[in-house]
Computed example of a mutant assay.
Amino acid sequence: MATDQTNSASMPGRYASALFELAKEQGSVEQIEADLKAFESLLTESEDLRRLVASPVFAAEDQSRALSALLEKAGISGLTENFLQVITHNRRLFAVPQMIKIFAALAAESRGEVTAEVTTAQALTDELTAELKQTLKNAVGKDVKLDARVEPAILGGLIVKIGSKMIDSSLRTKLTAMKVSLKAVS
C-alpha cells in the first residue's frame, strides 16, 4: 500500500527516495522526518512562503537566500537543509510538498506502518482514535498512523483512505445514494 503513495518513478518520488536513502545511511531518518514536518508546517502557516516555493518568477538564487534565512531561524540544518538547497538550485522547490509526503510514506513503510487518512465531521475523541487505529491495524496487519481531518460537510460517519483503497461511510454519501435511488424509482 505504501508503494501507491511513494511512486518513486515520479520526479518528487526520485528526490524523496534519494533523501530517504541518504538519511538511512546516516541513521537520521527520524531527524529528517521531523525537519521536513517542521518545514511543512511553515508552508501551511505562511502564504508568502507558499508563494516563494511555488512561483517560477523568483530566481533560484533569491529562493536560496530566503530559504537559508528561514531554515536557520527554524533550526533546520544538516542533510535537510542541503536537500532543500539542492532542490532549490535544481528549480524543483515547487514539488517539495509532494516530496515531504513521499518521504514520510517511505519512513513509515520502513517502520512497518501505514498511514490512514481519516475524514470525520467532528474531531475524534482519544478513545475513538485508539479504537479506529486498532480496527485498522487488524484489517491491514500493520501499525496504523492516523492523519485525521475534520470536514463538517460530510455530515457524519467517516471516510478512511489507506493507499489507493478508500472506505466512504459518510452520511453525505449515503444521502446522495438514497437520492439517486429515489429518482430512479420515480
Rank of each mutant, 00 (worst) to 15 (best):
A2T: 14
M11T: 15
P152M: 06
A184F: 03
F20Q: 06
S170T: 11
R92C: 02
L155G: 04
Q134C: 06
Q63D: 07
D62T: 14
G13M: 00
I32A: 04
D35L: 03
I87P: 00
F39M: 04
E33S: 13
K73H: 10
L171F: 10
I76G: 01
A66Q: 09
A107H: 00
A121Q: 03
D168V: 00
G163M: 07
E33I: 09
K73R: 14
L70T: 11
A121N: 02
K133V: 09
D147A: 13
R172C: 08
S46M: 05
Q122A: 13
A54D: 13
E127V: 11
T88Q: 05
I100R: 02
M178Y: 11
T88S: 01
G13H: 01
T3P: 12
E113K: 10
T44I: 13
D168L: 01
Y15I: 00
Q5I: 09
S10W: 01
F103T: 03
A95I: 08
T129F: 06
G157L: 03
A108Y: 06
E40T: 10
L124H: 01
G78V: 02
S55V: 04
S68A: 14
T135D: 10
R51K: 15
D48F: 08
Q98H: 12
S10N: 02
S46Q: 03
A148E: 14
L36E: 01
Q31P: 08
G27P: 02
S41K: 15
P56L: 05
G78H: 08
Q5H: 13
Q26V: 08
E30F: 09
S8C: 14
V53N: 04
S46I: 07
A121F: 05
L93M: 02
L49W: 03
Y15D: 04
G13T: 02
E21Q: 14
L106G: 02
H89R: 15
E61Y: 04
Q26H: 13
M11F: 13
E25V: 01
A108I: 06
S181P: 08
T115C: 05
K37I: 12
M99W: 00
A130I: 04
S164V: 00
A139Q: 12
L124C: 04
R65L: 12
A60K: 11
A69E: 14
T176S: 15
V185E: 14
T119P: 06
L124R: 07
L124M: 13
Q26S: 13
D168F: 07
R50Y: 07
T6I: 15
R149C: 09
A59M: 10
V53Y: 01
L155A: 04
K101P: 08
A95V: 07
L42A: 15
T120F: 03
A148L: 12
Q5T: 11
S164I: 06
P97M: 04
E151R: 09
A105L: 06
T125G: 10
K161N: 10
T129N: 10
I102D: 05
A123S: 13
T129P: 03
K73Q: 12
L43H: 05
P97N: 07
I159H: 10
A18G: 05
E61N: 12
A2V: 13
A23G: 06
N7H: 14
A23S: 10
L43N: 00
E45C: 05
T88I: 01
Q5Y: 12
R51Y: 14
Q122E: 14
K142L: 08
A148R: 10
L106T: 01
R149L: 12
S169L: 15
V29H: 02
G27Q: 05
R91E: 10
A139N: 09
T6F: 08
L79W: 03
I154C: 00
